[in-house]
């Protein structure tokens, strides 16, 4: 694993629990992130994001006022003068599959299960740097490509219901 220098980036931490926010901010400071902004819910986060100075969002999923899903939808909508391509790490203690799929289908970049560790946060940040995924826009989704692996050499039959997306990807790749 490479060692990254995060000194030049600005991260927004969105978390309604004060102590959990402190934990996340301390981890990021420990990883040498110099600028960490804080918001206690989605509404405050939008105000912070409108300034356009944020490089990465680390957000809780369950929040009382404007939860993570609503905030992520707002970010990916591109409205309110917010960059829709912002990388977003969703942090949640609720790790049931339904929750993770919901976050994925809303456009998260990475998912991080609580309790958090410095190692887990570092690895998610490294993944964002090393494996940037292109974005996909369909009638019902805008966000990072949900398929992390794409085998371009595969020439067999495509049986998935959404393989039309795959076909199109191939077409774009050939273009």
């Amino acid at each position: 694993m490479k060692t990254y220098n995060f000194e030049a980036i600005r991260i927004l931490v969105v978390e309604d629990n004060r102590f959990m926010r402190t934990i996340l901010v301390n981890v990021l400071w420990g990883l040498d992130v110099r600028e960490v902004a804080e918001a206690k819910n989605g509404i405050d986060a939008i105000e912070e994001l409108r300034g356009g100075q944020v490089d990465l969002v680390v957000m809780d999923w369950e929040m009382d006022e404007m939860n993570g899903m609503e905030l992520l939808k707002t970010i990916r909508s591109g409205k309110r003068n917010i960059n829709p391509l912002l990388p977003v790490i969703v942090v949640s203690a609720n790790t049931i599959a339904r929750n993770i799929i919901q976050a994925r289908d809303t456009g998260m970049t990475e998912f991080l299960a609580k309790p958090v560790s410095a190692n887990a946060i570092y690895s998610r940040m490294a993944a964002i740097v090393e494996n940037p995924r292109r974005f996909v826009r369909t009638e019902s989704y805008f966000g990072p490509d949900r398929r992390r692996r794409y085998d371009s050499a595969y020439g067999g039959p495509k049986r998935r219901a959404d393989d039309v997306e795959d076909d199109d990807r191939g077409a774009v790749g050939r273009a």
């Binding site: 220098n5 980036i9 490089d55 964002i128 740097v129 292109r134 826009r137 369909t138 997306e165 990807r169």
Partner: peptide, 21 residues
């Protein structure tokens, strides 16, 4: 009748601000 799918390249600007030590 296939659904319209558009791909957007990710410029990944954060990578330009993060350097390897």
């Amino acid at each position: 009748k296939r659904p319209k799918v558009e791909f957007v390249d990710n410029p990944n600007p954060i990578a330009k601000k993060i350097r390897v030590e």
